[in-house]
């Protein structure tokens, strides 16, 4: 496909993983990341639900993008996203009831998560269906990665397990990590860490350029 912006399918798919990570770089859609990352199981369920909604709503919005009048596009996007979230909500109620109970109101709240609406406005309204679908999947993977990172960290330091498998004894338990304040602490420390890594890497690059 001819493309003026130099976007290949692969670059669209991978943009959301690290460079444009919705959680750590764009700082969007934090509510579920903080609220349901108390265990790796919950984080995986929430991440997959969001990934599904993102991919399908991006695809669908891209199909109908040319027939939506510009003035009312936001309400239309929200209605489309709400329809898919309702489906996901009912599916999870039917097939994964325990997970549905422990995620609670955060599943219907995917509707008002900034990421699907943000991607609809920024990407799906301007690109073809296939690219939009890839963008949704890529952003969904970025979100899934971030929420899993938090979920695994918090579960590990709360009870010494990952997905319920025993890793180490309870001697390393930091009990605040699983409480609400712990979510802020863990994500803040990760952000500082990522920024530090980015800084060290850019310094190394600069040094490498000088030595040439």
């Amino acid at each position: 496909m001819a493309n003026q912006n130099g976007e290949t399918n692969l670059s669209v798919l991978t943009a959301g993983w690290i460079k444009q990570n919705p959680t750590f770089v764009q700082v969007l859609g934090l509510c579920p990341v903080l609220a349901v990352s108390t265990s790796a199981d919950n984080a995986l369920g929430m991440g997959l639900a969001t990934l599904g909604v993102l991919a399908i709503s991006n695809l669908f919005i891209s199909f109908v993008r040319n027939i939506i009048p510009n003035e009312i596009r936001i309400p239309v996007y929200i209605s489309i996203i709400a329809a898919f979230v309702t489906m996901v909500n009912l599916l999870m109620h039917g097939y994964t009831y325990d997970l549905w109970v422990s995620l609670g109101i955060y599943i219907p709240l995917i509707v008002v998560n900034c990421i699907p609406l943000g991607r609809a406005e920024a990407f799906a309204s301007k690109h073809g269906p296939w690219k939009s679908f890839l963008d949704g999947v890529g952003m969904g993977i970025g979100f899934l990665g971030a929420i899993m990172l938090l979920g695994i960290t918090r579960e590990l330091f709360d009870s010494g397990t990952i997905f319920g498998y025993h890793i180490w004894s309870s001697a390393y338990d930091v009990f605040v990590v699983a409480l609400p304040p712990g979510a802020f602490l863990v994500i803040g420390l990760y952000m500082g860490l990522f920024r530090y890594i980015g800084k060290v890497r850019s310094q190394k690059k600069a040094q490498g350029d000088e030595s040439k």
Binding site: V27, V176, L179, P180, P181, G182, F184, L185, I187, G188, L189, M191, G192, R195, Y196, K199
Partner: peptide, 23 residues
């Protein structure tokens, strides 16, 4: 502040302390 924590990371740590207070 330590340069790597300026901005967003510092905000999260602040929220952590505030949240501890509310607990």
């Amino acid at each position: 502040l330590p340069p790597v924590f300026e901005g967003m990371p510092a905000a999260f740590i602040t929220a952590f302390v505030l949240s501890m207070g509310f607990m």
